[in-house]
Every structure is written in C-alpha cells, then in structure tokens.
Simulated scan of single mutants.
Amino acid sequence: MSEITVRRATAADSKRLTKLVRGSAAYRGPYAVIVDGYRVGGAYIEHHPVHVAVDADDRVLGFYALLLDEAELDLAFVADSAQGLGIGRLLMAHMTGEARAAGLDAVRVVAHPPAEEFYLRTGARRTGTVPAAGRIHWDRPELSYDLTDAAAAAA
C-alpha cells in the first residue's frame, strides 16, 4: 500500500465521505437504518474537526469526526477495501492527539456494537451502555479514551 496521510477534510470531501458511510459493510442488515440517507455535509465538515486518511492518489481510506464541544467521537469509518491495514488505528491515534491538543481530558464514544472491540484495542475503555432510542433499536456500548497524563503513563 502506498503512503498514507491524515489531513483535515474539506467541504469538497463531502460526497466521498458520504459514499464511504453509506457503503460500509458494517451497516448492512439490521444496522442499515443508521446510514440510510445519511450525508456528511460540507457545513458539518467545515464546522467540526473532520480528518481523512488518504493514499498518495488522494483515495479516501477512512475518516473521523471529533465534536470538541461535546468531547465526543461522532463518526469513524474505514473503507471496506482498507479494513485490516491499520487505518483505523492510525485515525484513532490522530484523533486522540488532536483531542489532547484541544485540551480535552477524555473523548466519549457511543459505538456501533460490532466496533466495540476495535475501540477497546485502540485504548478506549467501556464506561456504560446507551439504551436503544428512536431509529436505533439496540443498545450501544459507551466507551471513553482517557487522555490524561496519568492514563498516558499507565499505557
């Protein structure tokens, strides 16, 4: 695989990020309702720290969106074709670095149930469960990345 970079997304990335979300194999079957009609809009990208992993040809391999005011990871996706290549781990390391630089002590994650193990492997810890509500008919794991100096020293 060619060199991978993580850069700040721009509104021009909107269609490619939306396509990645809607096409994710992780959201087929009962989970499809979550991404049905979902759009990663240009205004959203411009307002929030959204970062995208791209290869040397600017092919989108994955992205994440961090909500600084809420100290929450809002979106995190890796293209199906890039699964298992370390893109997710790269994005989470980047995200925690950006969150620390912004002065956050922790980042909350309300995870897609099949993604819980990924977040645990990348340093998050389980903090609870978010009950089903609205269009989401299943409970979701709640996790947190602890960004304090004490957490870094223990790692």
Rank of each mutant, 00 (worst) to 15 (best):
V110W: 03
D69K: 10
G123F: 05
G103D: 07
Y145L: 13
V60N: 03
E72R: 11
A133H: 13
I45K: 04
R135H: 13
R16G: 00
A25F: 09
D36K: 14
S2H: 11
D69A: 06
V52P: 08
L90G: 04
D139S: 11
L75D: 13
G103A: 03
G88H: 10
A65N: 11
A153R: 11
V6H: 01
A32V: 05
H94C: 10
D105L: 14
M95I: 12
H51P: 06
I136R: 13
A101L: 13
A11R: 10
G84V: 11
R7C: 01
L68S: 03
V109R: 01
D146N: 07
V54Y: 08
E3Q: 12
A111M: 09
V33M: 03
L104G: 04
A79K: 03
R28V: 05
A106K: 11
S14M: 02
L61P: 00
R7L: 02
H112D: 05
T148S: 15
V78N: 03
V60F: 04
A9I: 04
A82R: 06
L90F: 09
E98F: 04
E98V: 15
G29S: 05
D36R: 15
V6F: 00
V60M: 06
A124N: 00
E116N: 09
D55I: 08
M95R: 05
A43Q: 13
L17I: 03
A154E: 04
